[in-house]
């Protein structure tokens, strides 16, 4: 299921999922979220708009409840940034699912937005990236980047003046700063991996394992 809150890349994300699996349910109805087998939060544009749209549509609590229940979740671009605690873009408070902040690129000799294909180096293994070589290039368009406060969150790293976590993953949550739906076959492979991971109980087992370790 793909959350419709007016994000510009909503249709591209839905098309990519349709290409690798089947057409997803695209919904703006908070009541649908609890019933989703897998949830995708797309996004492009400004943090303030994103959060304002999520709030005005009553989507914040259903998303947080869904994630807290350990169900498979994918955030894309702004859908990653929204998971962090706070964004420098408008000083916006975000969902706070993952520890970290969203920072603005400092231009110093570089073009902003960071636009185009950049490489991503995997720092660990994960079902989401299966079959995609480390160092593969993905399509980025953004002026702000995620600064995670727990380095263990990073699954992929990218350098653009600063090194940042371009893919994060924890338990049932994965998210990319780049646009897999615009990154050719490697991007499609990530969507296929996400669907397979979700169908296999995506992250739920890992959450249970983490709970088991904690107890």
């Amino acid at each position: 299921m793909v959350i419709d809150y007016g994000a510009g890349n909503l249709r591209s994300v839905a098309r990519a999922i349709a290409h690798v699996h089947e057409a997803p349910n695209v919904t703006a109805d908070p009541a649908d979220i609890a019933a989703a087998g897998a949830l995708v939060l797309p996004g492009v544009g400004a943090a303030a708009d994103t959060m304002a749209n999520l709030r005005s549509r009553g989507l914040v609590t259903p998303i947080l409840d869904y994630i807290a229940a350990g169900r498979p979740f994918l955030g894309v671009c702004m859908g990653l940034q929204a998971l962090l605690e706070w964004s420098e873009e408008g000083g916006e408070e975000c969902l706070g699912v993952l520890p970290g902040k969203v920072r603005k690129f400092s231009p110093e000799g570089r073009k902003v937005p960071h636009m185009g294909w950049n490489t991503v180096e995997w720092v660990r293994d994960h079902p989401f990236i299966e079959g995609v070589p480390s160092g593969s290039a993905f399509y980025f368009v953004h002026s702000f980047y995620p600064e995670v406060s727990d380095p263990g969150l990073a699954l992929g790293l990218t350098e653009y003046g600063v090194e940042f976590a371009s893919v994060v993953a924890r338990d049932n949550v994965v998210a990319t700063q780049f646009h897999p739906e615009k990154s050719g076959d490697h991007g499609l492979l990530l969507y296929r991996n996400f669907v397979r991971w979700a169908l296999a109980g995506g992250g739920v087992a890992q959450v249970a394992a983490a709970a088991g370790r904690a107890s």
């Binding site: 160092g135 076959d185 490697h186 492979l189």
Partner: peptide
């Protein structure tokens, strides 16, 4: 430049 070739998905 981006040179890697992926298998069609």
């Amino acid at each position: 430049v981006r040179l890697e070739a992926a298998q069609p998905v």
